[in-house]
Amino acid sequence: MSLGDLQRRLLTAVMTGRPVPELSAAGQRVYANNVRCQLLAALRDTYEKCAAWLGDDVFHVHARAYIEAHGSTSWSLDHYGSDFPDYLARAFPERLELSELAWLEWALRTAFSGRNASGLALEELHVRDWDGVQFSFVPTLMYRQLHTNAPALWAGIATGQGIHTRPSDSATDNGHGVRVWRHELTPRFVSMTRAEHACLDLLVAGATFGEVCEWLSSTAREKDVASAAGSLLRAWATDGLITGVRETG
């Protein structure tokens, strides 16, 4: 048997726990156990809040099922588990908070060691023509719509306070979504309104600040546009999200 064939057979054996007959079964059990423990530890580390929310035993069962279906394709264990939020969405269709909590944990993990970039303060944004300006954001920025109060759940688990899951507060728009980024060395998240979500979508796609204001005026009362746009800009600058400006005019 060639080395390649041997390695493919042995790898399958240690990943599945079904040993190659001509090799020591006891030895293969040690390797299979090592592999399982490593991948389980990686999932537990990344999805610590999910494990706390689900309970250790239930988390273990689903982590095992995920491992059965998903081999690691990266040299880094930090990359393992990127599909776990989707797995939880399929496994618990009635408990949306689980996949959203998992997404938040994955985003925070990704931001933790993402590319460095310095955010500009508001007074560092030297712009002559605000209508024509485009923004660039820190590379660790991730955001999405949510259907549950997963960010509050995350915080409640982190502080050890009891908290109940509930749908996001869409009536007041405060809990429409969440954005995650890293400020200096610390990953952070805040809740995001529907308007902020839409504005970020536009700016990330290359729209100018003037186009964002136009969109706001189509949804807000005319007199609110300047105030709404200014508030968003201040929040992004304060959070260190804006890394650069480019005037297109």
Binding site: L6, R8, L11, G71, L77, Y80
Partner: peptide, 15 residues
Amino acid sequence: TGVGGINSHDLLPLP
């Protein structure tokens, strides 16, 4: 540690 693009994250033995 792996073959065929799959990583076991364990130090597997060579003949």
